[in-house]
Amino acid sequence: MTQTAPIKVTLIAGGVGGAKMAEGLYQLENVELSIIGNIADDEAFHGLWVSPDIDTLTYTLADVIERQQGWGVKDESHRALETLSILGDDTWMSLGDRDFGLHIYRTHRRRKGHRPTHIAQDIAESFGLTCRIILPTDDVVQTRVKTDAGWLSFQQYFVRERCAPDVRELRYDRIEKAHATDEALSALSEADVIVMAPSNPLVSILPVLQIPGILEAIKASNAVKIGVSPIINGGVVKGPADRMLASLGHEATALGVAQMYAEFLDCFVIDHADEQHVSAINQLGMMSSMKAILMKSREDKVRLASEVLAVSGVMGSWVSPAQEPET
């Protein structure tokens, strides 16, 4: 039997929703997966460089993630944080002891002048991953959130303030001077399918797309471009995306997200609960496809990933890999 060439899939992802989509794609046979992860949430804590979205992708695909909360490492302890608290350090950013080990390693390598892209790749390989986790830029880009109390870093807004303040404005510091990595541009150029994960479009996807060269590479790519809605029936599974969209003047619906991606997507996958938006999405110049997009289990993730690729028209007939229940 002739072995067909693997389908090259490039996923643009951030947050828990992005990690779920990544896990589904990673479980599929005959898929060569590259993931361009959001780095605009990165920040220094206790002298260490923390990259939350990249680490969540790594931990999820390595199956060491704390699944109940969707981030961090399972079976974690917090003794280092307890000591820092005793010493009077600000410990609102919850970092576990195993997690600290990764941040120490990353910071040590960065201080030696190693490329952040190479550091992320080496970490992924050390965790046994066979897909590529790619940084969109080696430069520092950071999301800032303006509230009534002033400007906050994204982690201050998301973790310390628990997403409570109304968001008045967003900006991505230093993004206009950032340079896209060759690895990210190649992954987009060579892809058969490019997927926008069901991540918060404002703080997980746009900070990637607005890095100079990234959106241009997506548009120039011959890949089929598909997005998956992070909004189901006007709400989100987790996170502040719906409230952020509304407060910044966007429609907090699947249609509102589709409008943000309309200039480059070929298809937008929405939930059956959002059938009322099909006609309006089609009028944006893209196809719409209705699926059950809520991902509660590994089986859900694999099913949705396979359906997304089937929609692209490049998957053809395929056999699902053995699926194990998520623990």
Rank of each mutant, 00 (worst) to 15 (best):
I214C: 07
I194P: 14
N222T: 08
A5T: 15
D75H: 13
D266M: 06
I104C: 13
R144W: 03
D63M: 07
M260C: 10
A184Q: 09
F154N: 02
E125P: 06
E43F: 09
G37Q: 09
P116S: 11
H78K: 05
G72H: 03
E66H: 15
Q121K: 15
E32H: 09
C267E: 11
V9G: 05
W92F: 08
D192C: 11
S85E: 14
V236S: 15
D53P: 00
L33T: 10
A223Q: 02
I86P: 07
D42S: 04
A220P: 07
G37R: 01
H118M: 13
V159A: 08
F100A: 07
G285H: 08
S189H: 12
L48A: 06
M295L: 13
G316I: 00
E43K: 07
C163L: 01
G113H: 11
V228I: 15
F154T: 00
D148Y: 10
H46P: 04
Q69I: 15
P6C: 05
Q283K: 14
A322L: 13
L87R: 13
L206Y: 10
H108V: 12
P212E: 12
V9H: 01
S189I: 04
Q142Y: 02
C131Y: 06
G227F: 07
I218V: 12
I65G: 03
G239A: 03
T130I: 10
G17I: 02
Y157G: 06
V145I: 06
G37K: 01
D173Y: 13
L209C: 09
S247L: 00
T137C: 10
E275C: 09
V278T: 11
P201L: 03
G17C: 01
Q283D: 15
I226P: 05
Q259G: 12
A5P: 09
C131V: 09
P201W: 06
I270Q: 05
F154Y: 07
T117H: 13
V278D: 05
K177C: 07
Q69W: 06
A124C: 13
A241K: 03
P240A: 06
D90E: 15
G316W: 08
P230E: 05
D42T: 02
V167M: 00
V141A: 04
Q276K: 15
L202T: 00
F127G: 04
I39S: 00
H78R: 02
P240W: 04
M21N: 01
R162Q: 12
Y172N: 04
S189K: 12
A22R: 01
G113N: 10
N38K: 05
R110G: 08
F127A: 00
E324D: 09
K8A: 04
T83G: 12
Q259W: 10
K146D: 02
S126M: 13
G150E: 00
V269D: 07
E251R: 12
V50Y: 11
P201T: 01
V145R: 00
L11C: 07
R243Q: 11
K74W: 02
S221C: 02
Q283F: 11
I65P: 04
V257S: 04
T91A: 08
D75L: 03
L215D: 10
L209D: 07
I218E: 03
S229W: 09
P321R: 10
V308G: 12
G313I: 04
P165G: 01
S199E: 01
S279L: 11
